[in-house]
Design a protein around this nucleic acid. Structure first.
Lengths: 252, 252
DNA sequence: CCCCTTTTTGTGAAAATTTAACGGTTTTTC
DNA sequence: GAAAAACCGTTAAATTTTCACAAAAAGGGG
């Protein structure tokens, strides 16, 4: 029984969220009632949470909600989903894409279809999200781990980027300054990584939801001249869109 | 409506976990169906989780995960805890330690006191565990991410090791063969990483619970001559212990 | 201001999930 | 080795959840 419970928790942790039917399929020969009882016990141990129709892994929840992102990940959820859905149509299967760390890009990672991509990222949460799918290959950039957002940065991370090829870079920013057309973020080391990735990439896609416009954070890592196309939400102002397009940026 | 949703979320956040009946009491004049729909929308926004009969706040879930391990699901949990407790006494603050990926080493990572260590690891789970403490600095080895155990391996991972210094390496194995005194693991790439780490480290500590003895897995990555000391549990056989000590391995 | 479209809300029935109870089996414990 | 406890599967009952549809409310031009 201990054995089954172990595999059960493992299975839930790996999938993040499962239905009872999936469990029945994954554990043939075990009655659904027993699975229920197991879930009950795991819930008592705070290992999982039961939800209508199945269960979710506590680990997955905690991770997807970690550090400073706690309130931010669900802010503008609808807009971010819209952006992610549009953006996944711009990447082609079998291509090698870098996914930047951030809440909007996490939605992108979730929306990514289960195809043979080569995914590179410096965000632990995104690596996990993509790895849950079956086909993509995932590489995680090494380096110093940032406490607040679980992103790797630093010297070794930059060296790592030297050794890889990037076809498409899917980036995001914490702020966009209209006057100068610059994208900004909160950390020095973070900005360095972003800069290097953009330099290396053949094609740069910037995901930006409307709440970021004219929000100022310390470090500028790119300007509109560096990006090839941008994906925005429906609340994005028309005039800003035309400004961008005049500078050769495709806006979706 | 937005107003009601706001109060609803506030109410759930305050109470942690609520039933639908409680909500009906707290929001008189609102039908239960509407409350259901509201919960649905809040869940879509990742603001709450619906559970059978009600909902919980994300905050409550995160708080429930106070580092307590599910006792029920772990093989040899007691033994592994014993090993971890003994092993953390062997590392000194301010030192630079590598922690190998594995279940016993995950216990070690949990037991590690909140001091100024420099921690290097190729296991995502261990990186997260240590990062939750406040003082340690954590670096994650980059590379291809292994689907089954969330460990990075591969060329770039090996290159990464070239660039770092390791004072103490805390390793583990999936099997130990008594006759030849060799430690084994299940993957080729994994073995390569382990070998390189051991070569780089000044001091190698091997954690091995008694269930691993004479369990055979394909790849040998080290022999007893490579390790400086070993931490085992109380079920470990006496004679094996003396054999090890005769070969210059300190056994705890 | 009115009409039309869209969104939200409430009701009740249908579907499903969850719980509860019971007897047989296995495992623990003394 | 026997009594006690824990575990498992089946069935039936209770509850929860979903679904569909119509009423009500809220926007949105003209």
């Amino acid at each position: 029984m201990k054995d089954r419970m172990f595999h059960l928790k493992e299975f839930i942790d790996k999938n993040g969220r499962v239905t009872l039917k999936e469990l029945e399929g994954a554990f043939p020969g075990v009655s659904s009632m027993t699975l229920r009882r197991d879930l009950q016990r795991l819930e008592e141990d705070n290992a999982i949470f039961r939800v209508p129709g199945g269960a979710v892994s506590v680990g997955a929840i905690v991770r997807s909600n970690d550090g400073a992102v706690s309130e931010r990940i669900n802010y503008n959820a609808e807009e971010k989903l819209e952006i992610a859905d549009k953006a996944v149509k711009l990447v082609e299967p079998m291509s090698c894409i870098f996914i930047d760390g951030g809440s909007t890009t996490t939605y992108f990672a979730r929306a990514l279809p289960d195809d043979n991509f080569y995914v590179l990222t410096n965000a632990v949460i995104i690596a996990e999200t993509v790895l849950r799918k079956h086909k993509p290959t995932v590489s995680l950039l090494g380096g110093d781990l940032n406490k607040s957002n679980f992103i790797t940065v630093g010297r070794s991370c930059l060296d790592f980027i030297d050794g890889i090829n990037i076809q498409t870079a899917v980036m995001t920013a914490t702020g966009y300054i209209k006057d100068t057309g610059s994208f900004t973020c909160g950390g020095q080391a973070e900005a360095e990584v972003k800069r290097k990735v953009i330099k290396k990439a053949d094609n740069v896609i910037m995901l930006l939801d409307s709440s970021k416009v004219n929000k100022k954070t310390p470090y500028t890592f790119a300007s509109i001249l560096d990006v090839d196309c941008m994906v925005v939400d429906k609340n994005f102002s028309k005039e800003l869109k035309t400004t961008l397009e005049q500078n050769g940026v495709k806006v979706y």
